[in-house]
C-alpha cells in the first residue's frame, strides 16, 4: 500500500517544518500534522488507530526513522497538486506547530471523522484523553480543528447570524447609550 511519503515531506517543506526525528516533541508534530492534513484531503493513506496516546500511526513513525534524512531536510518533490497545496496552506494559516494544540485538534478530529462520534461526545472524550492540556489550549485546539475540517455550511452560518442578530443589535444599542 502506498502511504505517499512524498506528499508528507513536501507538505512539511511548504510549512517550513524540518522535524528532528530523534526528538519526541517533533515526532508528536509529525503524527498530528499528517493526520489533520490527511483528514482534510491530502492524498495520503496512513492507517491511524487510537492508542493510549490518542490517534497514532505506527507505520508513519517507522517511515520517519527509516527515511530520517528526507524528513529532516524536506524538499519540494512535485508530489502535491494545486488542491493539496491549498490544503497545506490552510493548515499553516489555521494551526501553530505546537504539540498541545495539535494533539487536541487531531484527537478531536479522529473521534469525529474516524469514530463517527457527534461533536459533543468527541469533545468530551478529547478533554478526558488530553486532560493534562490546560483548558484554554484544549478549547483552542478543538476550535481550530473545527475551523480546518468542519467549517459551518452556508445555512448554518445564516442560522447563526439570525440567532445572534438580536444580541448584536442590543449590544450596539447599549454601546450607543453609553457614548
Amino acid at each position: 500500500m502506498m502511504l505517499h511519503r512524498d506528499k508528507v515531506i513536501e507538505s512539511f517543506h511548504q510549512l517550513g517544518f524540518s522535524p528532528r526525528v530523534g526528538e519526541f516533541e517533533d515526532r508528536i508534530l509529525i503524527q498530528k500534522c499528517v493526520l489533520l492534513l490527511q483528514l482534510r484531503g491530502l492524498g495520503t493513506a496512513y492507517p491511524y488507530r487510537l492508542h493510549i496516546r490518542g490517534p497514532y500511526c505506527v507505520e508513519l513513525n517507522r517511515e520517519a526513522f527509516a527515511h530520517r534524512d528526507e524528513f529532516e531536510a524536506p524538499a519540494s518533490r512535485g508530489a502535491l497538486d494545486e488542491k493539496e497545496r491549498a490544503i497545506v496552506a490552510a493548515f499553516g494559516e489555521t494551526f501553530e506547530l505546537r504539540p498541545n494544540q495539535l494533539e487536541v485538534a487531531a484527537t478531536y478530529a479522529y473521534f469525529v471523522s474516524c469514530d463517527g462520534l457527534d461533536p459533543v461526545e468527541a469533545h468530551r472524550r478529547t478533554r478526558k484523553l488530553k486532560s493534562f492540556v490546560p483548558a484554554a489550549q484544549q478549547a483552542l485546539g478543538i476550535s481550530r480543528a473545527k475551523r480546518f475540517l468542519y467549517p459551518p455550511t452556508e445555512e448554518e452560518t445564516r442560522e447563526m447570524k439570525d440567532e445572534f442578530a438580536l444580541w448584536q443589535s442590543a449590544s450596539l444599542r447599549s454601546g450607543r447609550d453609553h457614548e
Binding site: 493510549i52 513513525n61 493534562f132
Partner: peptide, 20 residues
C-alpha cells in the same frame, strides 16, 4: 499492551495517567 503498541516512541507519564 499500551506501550507495546507504541514501540520505541513510548508515552509520557501524563498521557498514561489520563488514558488509564
Amino acid at each position: 499492551q499500551g506501550l507495546a503498541a507504541l514501540g520505541p516512541d513510548g508515552a509520557t507519564y501524563r498521557e498514561l495517567k489520563a488514558a488509564l
